[in-house]
Simulated scan of single mutants.
Amino acid sequence: MKKLLPYLMIAAGASLWGIIAFFVKGLADYGFTSMEIVAIRVIYAAIFLLFIGIIHYRKQMILYRFTDIRFFIGTGIFSVVFFNFCYFTTISQMNISIAVILLYTAPAFVTILSFIFLKESLNMNKLIAVIGTIIGCILIAGVSAGDSNLTFIGVITGLGSGLGYALYTIFSKFALKKYQPFTITLYTFIVAAIFLLPITQLWQKVDLLLNSNVLLYSIGLGFIPTVLAYFIYTWGLQKTEGSKAAVIATVEPVVATLLGVMLYGEKLGLIQIAGAILILCSVIIVNVSFQKKNVTSVSQKLS
């Protein structure tokens, strides 16, 4: 059981990510825009992380140099804010299952961006995975373009969410050279919150934010599929290989799909299912490639 527990925790963390649409749709029903929902998520997550940091990670709350904030501008604004905005917009435009599958184009973006900026090699497995991801997206968005559940904006923002999610890995690679994962996560959400608060001007909706249902959705969004999911996933990740964890994490789109079917009556066509399976297979191929590489490396950090 002890050997299985890390894998179960990874699956549990990924499953919590998979239910994020429940909170997003709940807040959208009260009239909040995608950007406002992003702001709500990062603000509550930052508050929770500050409390956790004060209690358990005080030493990791220290920045060595103020100029290092540039790392967290990358992870906080160019990744988290951009990724969440695109992802929440996609959820509002299309089926939850399609939104999360398009998000899972992230490994293909990571492969390409790592080759360009981190000078990582491109092997046959990675190339096959990238091509598979592209074909999967074409099957989902192109061949079935007549599907009323698909929109041009939804497809573009869906791919944008994959790109934004991938950027977190790229920026984190640089930040991890100096800081621990908790430090990166904390300042990522703090920077994102500081950036979004004046843009969204959420204080103008304070009465609505204090509505009991909105408050529950907001706290739930900031804690359950964000802070709690991160800690559960990270705990499991510390006790197993990053490549295995990434493959196990593909349970997220399964959970999201089940959520869409059971709560919102969503359906997928055969072509869309084929595209989804192709993208998920590509994710697994990428991570198998990383696993082989890790046999000869000292360690690999997963963001």
Rank of each mutant, 00 (worst) to 15 (best):
V42F: 05
A106K: 02
L102S: 02
T169R: 00
L27Y: 07
K177S: 10
F189I: 01
G31C: 10
Q300Y: 13
I224D: 01
L4V: 12
F171I: 11
E36G: 04
S299C: 09
A249L: 08
I116V: 15
L209A: 07
L259C: 13
M262F: 15
G132A: 03
F85H: 09
L202A: 09
I128D: 00
T250E: 05
F109K: 09
L270W: 11
G162N: 09
G164R: 07
T200W: 11
I190R: 02
P253A: 09
I55L: 15
S282N: 03
V251H: 01
T296H: 13
T240G: 02
I52S: 06
A193S: 14
Q60F: 08
Q93I: 03
G236T: 03
Y187Q: 04
L263M: 14
P253N: 06
I190W: 04
V191F: 04
I54P: 03
I135Y: 00
F109I: 11
N287H: 14
L127F: 12
T257L: 10
I271K: 03
F82V: 13
Y230F: 15
N287R: 08
V38R: 00
I112S: 00
L139K: 03
F117W: 14
F82L: 15
F85D: 06
K177D: 09
F51M: 14
Y233L: 13
L122A: 02
L49S: 09
V261K: 05
Y104T: 07
F85T: 07
I128F: 10
L159P: 04
G162I: 11
V24L: 05
L196P: 04
I134Q: 00
L4W: 11
T89I: 11
C281M: 13
I232Y: 08
F117P: 09
G132S: 02
M61C: 08
A11Q: 05
Y104C: 05
Q201M: 13
S299D: 14
C86Q: 01
S289C: 01
V206P: 00
S121C: 04
G162K: 09
G76T: 06
F171Y: 13
L113V: 07
P6Q: 10
L122I: 13
I40N: 02
L270K: 02
A249C: 06
C86V: 06
F182S: 07
I98K: 02
V130T: 06
G146K: 14
T188L: 02
H56A: 15
S79C: 07
G132V: 09
F152W: 15
T111F: 12
K293L: 14
L215A: 14
G53K: 10
S218I: 06
A175E: 01
V286P: 01
S79T: 03
Q291M: 13
M94A: 08
V24S: 06
L202H: 05
Q300N: 12
A45P: 02
Q272P: 02
G74M: 08
V283L: 12
L63P: 03
A245Q: 07
T33K: 12
